[in-house]
Amino acid sequence: MKRNNFDLTERYLMGDLSAEESTAFEKLMETDTELKAELNLGKEINEAILESDIMNLRHTMSEIMNKKQKPVFIKNPFLWPATAAVFILAMIINTLFISSPADKNDIFKKYYKAYPSVYSSRSSQKQLRDQQCLRIAFEQYEKPDFESAGLLFKEMWIKDSTNNMAKFYLSIALIEQNKMNEAEKYLNELTLNKQHLFYEQSVWYLALVYLNNNKPDEAERLLNKIISENLSNKTRAKQILKSLN
């Protein structure tokens, strides 16, 4: 009996029954609670299988929780204490022994570092096309092949203009290719809206790009903004302002 129920419900769910058979099935279901339960189960299982996003999230959480003790599968993009220490030391030496204001382009080279990828490495295959595109883009970014990564991030951003992450990484990929004017344009757009995850980093990189593009006034304005609004890279912003003056 159960075997028949499974067969019937499966054919019904897949649309393999004829119109007459479907009507008969629906009528039968009104009185047959076992059949109804089988149908509900079949439907729910189908829904659950389609929840690849939930399964991916469960996988990500599990990776985070199980790898927490071992460093570091997600690179922390905000905390670079060792680097900061080196910069502070360098700035002290600079302030004490070098009296002339620093060259803008040198400052850019000194402070610029490509933003780390925030994509977690996954062992499982991702099903959705967009997620695959994102994975490949970050793989190229980490290689590093900034030209390919930039093209992929651009493709994602063109498809979805609200995808600020893609736009941000596109900007970094452009900086790496020395396409500073284009990077400036995108970063500038990213700083117009505070309501996204990459706002603070966009302000920082735009300030650096302004320095490189010989726009010290704009750079200073942003560096002051980083300090007054207590954004990421505040210490380094102070150091740069000191060296500029």
Partner: peptide, 9 residues
């Protein structure tokens, strides 16, 4: 919402 691994971490 975006399943951002950094934020989840």
């Amino acid at each position: 919402r975006s399943q951002n691994p950094y934020i989840l971490n």
